[in-house]
Design a protein around this nucleic acid. Structure first.
Lengths: 183, 183
DNA sequence: ATCACGTGAGACATCTGTGTCTCATTCGGT
DNA sequence: ACCGAATGAGACACAGATGTCTCACGTGAT
């Protein structure tokens, strides 16, 4: 009976990432609840978006923590990170594509901090000779977000199989599309 | 004096790709024109979006044509394609991230057709042994869009240098982040 | 210098989405 | 079976964006 707040936020993320001008009513319908109920849980559109930000940052941070980016080979850390990110991919896709949200410069810092941690992983990989050094850590970080978003949308639209999510991202990010000898 | 329609559409794409809820007034300001003038050129928000779609599809098709995807090694064709896409990257980023636009199933076909052409390039590369076969052409196509979008946003936000646009995308897409022997 | 045209600024009515409320209903716990 | 809490549906006023119009100004052509 009672509404699952997290569930509502997830469906909202999935919808808004594809139709950012969606109405509060559409968001409610997508979550399978009434508009009034949606309003009882989130004071308004503003609050809803804030909640999405907060949840996104929080869950991404948790995923980064769990992945233990400082341990083991950098490429394996990337695999762990992508694996942990999968459940929150639609939400991440929304937050990445809509950075209007970060005007208050409040949550902006939280985002920058997570960016730095991911970026640091790629830097570590470069220093340890695992990653090539002609692609900046900043770009690799952005590319990771982009690929995660693309994969999330592709799965959502049925263009690729959900079970291949991690494999597709990691393999392309780490190994690229070109066929090479050692593979 | 007279307004450059293409210029208006480009600035609108850049703005809307980052703040999709932007007002018509904001779009006008971003283009350096008045709201009334914007309205004289595009009957309404709906018409503006349609024009963005149309221009995006048209220019992407032109870029694909110019790249001559059927000729030469597949990886070189990818390089040509990315080079041709660079000027319309912000527009492409908008269209990819906001697929609410394709409800009328009209322009949807145009998009599907272009998708098929790009996808065919990757398939050709696989058949000729240039690309690995464990990543589907559909995914590689989506990934290309995703990376182009990420790169466009990164450049727009100043996180990476504009001059590295093509290099970053092509190198990551084709070669991946991992350091390997022949590189 | 004159004229036609396109533009910017502002006013205006309208519309759509928003936020709040009430009320009947349903679900879950007792 | 009962009761309380949460929900859905609908009504309502309000706010903000939209679409249209007018008018004055600047520009470019003649």
């Amino acid at each position: 009976m009672s509404v699952d707040r997290t569930q509502v936020l997830r469906s909202a993320a999935a919808l808004l990432s594809r139709k950012s001008t969606a109405t509060m009513d559409e968001v409610a319908r997508a979550a399978g609840i009434g508009r009034a109920t949606l309003h009882r849980h989130f004071a308004g559109r503003e609050a809803l978006v804030r909640a999405l930000e907060e949840m996104g940052l929080q869950e991404l941070e948790a995923a980064i923590d769990t992945a233990a980016l400082d341990e083991g080979p950098a490429d394996e850390a990337v695999r762990r990170l992508v694996a942990g990110i999968e459940p929150l991919a639609p939400l991440l896709a929304l937050l990445v594509s809509e950075n209007q949200l970060f005007e208050g410069d409040q949550q902006n810092e939280g985002w920058a901090r997570l960016d730095a941690r991911v970026s640091q992983l790629f830097r570590r990989g470069q220093e340890q000779g695992v990653f090539r050094i002609d692609l900046t850590p900043a770009w690799l970080t952005e590319a990771l977000y982009g690929l995660v978003g693309s994969a999330a949308w592709s799965v959502q639209d049925g263009r690729v199989a959900a079970k291949d999510f991690q494999y597709m991202i990691v393999e392309l990010l780490l190994g690229g599309a070109r066929r090479s000898v050692e593979r």
